[in-house]
């Protein structure tokens, strides 16, 4: 998903900046968005719309890229060649998702380097979920099933988000995601029906990933002050709590089907609302992870910064090579 609005960490509303924009343009823009028209890069748009999009899309892109790390950790230790090929393809897809999204954000006038710099300096956020460690192979199953599952829940409505390049990137991403979720579920299924030890590992992975997956949908609606504006601009199409509820309702029977137990004693079907009631989420933990206190947050950022720095000579050499070739062609 990875698109949670992480700006207002304590849930306090931002001061509204008085707009100096042409009211006629603003009104025409609002009308277009309300009519479900797509906004394209060269169209006029309010500055706040542009800023919100840059923040959300780049945050989403960073999450795809950082999200390669916990799974990449297991490529060399996948239990079979088939699992290794699948995991490699999945992680490569996540890199692709990051690139589609960076490209979409660049159409709003921000450069790739600016976004990378914002990530490395800690100014830009990424999904809290990737600051948890992948301790066993079962975690790879849990990530595909739950984390990609939550991502799908969030990304499907974004295919109709009002900004054209973002919506188109989401169409591509959604096409690729469902294999991610299925391969994860398949791993869980195999382990849950394996030896008692394997089943225990699968249950342990579910226990550790369940709550962080629910947190992926972001703070509860009453603490998500930007949601209303984002929904009015059709950047967001559903609230955090609506999506979280949907996720719980589809995932619980999937766990039951393979004999695993969702680690929530308060979880129960509520006939009247036609959905599950579930326990209180530990929002203190969520905000701590947003602040960069996740179990492996430092390790994740170090891996990204090292990769960037270690690749600097390649970026420079490629440019030098291109310049030399161009000079030769011109001579």
């Amino acid at each position: 998903m990875y698109t949670t609005e992480l700006q207002n960490q304590a849930g306090k509303p931002k001061a509204q900046v008085a707009s100096t924009e042409d009211p006629a343009l603003l009104e025409a823009f609002e009308a277009r968005v309300a009519a479900d028209e797509f906004i394209e890069p060269k169209d006029w748009m309010p500055e706040a719309y542009r800023r919100t999009l840059v923040r959300q899309i780049s945050q989403h892109a960073h999450s795809e890229i950082v999200g390669m790390l916990p799974e990449g950790n297991w490529i060399s230790r996948a239990p079979t060649l088939r699992r290794k090929a699948v995991l490699l393809a999945k992680v490569q897809d996540e890199g692709g998702h990051g690139l589609y999204l960076y490209a979409a954000a660049e159409t709003l006038g921000t450069s790739r380097d600016e976004m990378v710099e914002a990530l490395h300096s800690g100014k830009a956020k990424y999904s809290t979920i990737f600051n948890y460690p992948t301790l066993t192979w079962a975690d790879i199953g849990a990530i595909g099933w739950l984390v990609d599952g939550a991502a799908i829940m969030n990304q499907v409505p974004l295919q109709r988000t009002s900004y054209g390049p973002y919506a188109r990137a989401m169409v591509r991403v959604c096409k690729e995601e469902s294999f991610h979720q299925r391969q994860g579920y398949e791993i869980m299924m195999a382990m849950a029906s394996g030896t008692p030890e394997q089943k225990r590992m699968a249950q342990d992975a579910l226990n550790r990933w369940w709550w962080p997956s629910l947190m992926m949908f972001g703070p509860p609606d009453e603490n998500s002050p930007n949601t209303a504006q984002s929904m009015r601009w059709r950047i967001k199409r559903d609230t955090n709590d609506e999506l979280r509820q949907k996720f719980v309702d589809v995932t619980v029977p999937q766990a039951e089907a393979i004999g695993l137990t969702v680690p929530d004693p308060d979880l129960k079907w509520n006939e009247a609302k036609g959905g599950h009631d579930f326990g209180e989420i530990d929002w203190e933990e969520f905000y701590a992870v947003v602040r960069g206190e996740g179990p492996v947050a430092k390790e994740r950022m170090k891996a990204r910064i090292d990769a960037w720095n270690d690749g600097a000579w390649v970026r420079e050499a490629a440019l030098a090579h291109a310049a030399k070739r161009n000079a030769r062609a011109a001579a």
């Binding site: 589609y100 490209a103 660049e106 990137a169 591509r172 490629a318 440019l319 291109a322 070739r325 161009n326």
Partner: peptide, 12 residues
């Protein structure tokens, strides 16, 4: 049209 990429030259 499907999107864009960064690259140092045409081959890349």
């Amino acid at each position: 049209h499907v999107g864009s990429v960064h690259a140092a030259d045409d081959r890349m």
